[in-house]
Amino acid sequence: MKMKKFIAVLTVAGMMAVTAAGCGSDSGSTAAAATDSGSSWDAASAITVVSREEGSGTRGAFTELFGVVDENDNDMTTLDAQVTNNTSVMMTTVSENEYAIGYISLGSLDESMVKAVKIDGAEATAENIENGSYTVSRPFNVAVKKDLDNAVATDFMAFIMSTEGQQVVSDEGYIPVSEAEAYAGDAPEGSCVVGGSSSVSPLMEKLVEAYGEVNPNASIELQTSDSTTGMTSAIEGSYDIGMASRELKEDEAAELDGTVIATDGIAVIVNQNNPTDDLSVDQVKSIYLGDVTTWDAI
């Protein structure tokens, strides 16, 4: 019996000690990282290049606009680049790693975690994209079947392109595409399914809520998946409206009518301790091609 008690005490004590040590060492290391980083930024350290996955709308737009391609327009992003398919993983990685560089949708940028660098002197803001000084952007597309006969879907599309809809777009930090007229729909009854790209989804969610106010008769279901599922499901008919954060592929465009509903900027992000504030297109390009591998070599 004594033995058992002894083991019990030992175990509990051990667990506590290890937990405490674990917590202690962890908070210690983060604290240490936070304090050294300000003073000991080591520019000779290797750059951790973080990229989105092949085929992603964000990556497609990024490689094209920065010229991270070969003469045949093939994506030549260095194979040493880390890859993620998730915006928050991208942001967390860059905020945890002082020497990392990545890129995300401007709408998701959280300045308390990471720093967006200027490209050729232009800051990544909606205004700069609209006036053309910041050029890194991509379209948000929605697509419907060519012979769509869902009154709610048609009316919702009209709403998105109306003044009210485009107001939501700019309120959310995206760039509106048209100077359209006010919404004048007849608020039809019924339901429709919208689904696709997770990049477009946060904006679409706001649009659906705004539409619910002008047309309480309709119910709209929002599915979040990805661009390709959005397009294929729109073709198959399980979605009435598909969303994509990339251009429509040829075989998709044959079956669907695509409409650009907004433009989204792409921000190039670095760690907040990184002294770099401004990069040129060529510098970003050489980092992503793998020609430059340390921060001091830029």
């Binding site: 092949e54 085929g55 398919n85 990805d226 661009s227 390709t228």
Partner: peptide, 13 residues
């Protein structure tokens, strides 16, 4: 599979 399935089409998929 998971990373690229989202955007892949045709032969890539």
């Amino acid at each position: 599979i998971v990373i690229e399935m989202g955007y892949a089409t045709g032969l890539h998929r």
